[in-house]
Design a protein around this nucleic acid. Sequence first.
DNA 1: CGTGTAAGGAATTCTGACACG
DNA 2: CGTGTAAGGAATTCTGACACG
Lengths: 151, 151
Amino acid sequence: MNNTLDPSFREQLRFVTKNVHWYLGIGDVAEATGVSQSQLRYWEQKGYIESKKENNQNRKYTYGTLIKVFIIKNYMEQGFTLGAAVKKAAAHKETTELIKRFVLDRFEGVETIDGLPAINLGYLDKAKSERLFALIKEDHTDFKIIPTSEA
Amino acid sequence: MNNTLDPSFREQLRFVTKNVHWYLGIGDVAEATGVSQSQLRYWEQKGYIESKKENNQNRKYTYGTLIKVFIIKNYMEQGFTLGAAVKKAAAHKETTELIKRFVLDRFEGVETIDGLPAINLGYLDKAKSERLFALIKEDHTDFKIIPTSEA
DNA sequence: CGTGTAAGGAATTCTGACACG
DNA sequence: CGTGTAAGGAATTCTGACACG
């Protein structure tokens, strides 16, 4: 239908997450995680992490793999062996995906309430009698419920 | 019902977002957005986007810049000039940061409720009488409020 | 204004081997 | 088991210039 940007934040967010498929180079992953390039190649050879090689060229990593590498590294620093760290990291893999799902499902846009930026999270209940907002404050975020009638 | 692992998911998330500072190469940004490398260099020269050059070497871009580039490109495809597209893209810049703030402030972990993955968003009210959860379902996400006493 | 290209140099990544252990 | 390094080649990115417009 449209491959252009809708003015709505929500549509924008969906559009971006759906259409931007990006990868990181091995140097960027090594730099960000503190895990060496030789470690990354070895971990891949053992099947612990994955990379993509589009045209039989350089390795490219997803964001999920970047995080996985970082978590594995930290478990190793806690004393786990490489193999054990990999197993532990796998338990956390689902989290990022769930958060992404939540944001894509519930993010309706950014508004201003009481002079603060407020994330519109849509209807709180199925009866659609109340709307839920997340008010981003200086050092924390509060929820605020607003009856639909007031809108 | 708590699937809490090692350090809590929350701590893990904070730790990761706080400690993993990653960048993308120009080739990765070009590949992901469909904007050519020469365009990216020109846009930077004009001050529309930024890149970092750690050791006076190759350009590195943040995720925010990646998104900005993608949005600019799409506005241009809608007929806006480069300059106009940049201004429009700027209006969306804050969104990603706010969502990140919200997730870091409110994400308490992933649990299981009614057999579904549920994101624990902490107390709904200041009196801490109710907790808010986001239940991730097949094709949408519902909120669920649970009185603290039931916990 | 905005982007592409050819050119030569610089920085990055590749593989397979070998070292250490 | 897990990582580092030296080596030579391949792929990537750099800048400044020039073209088109």
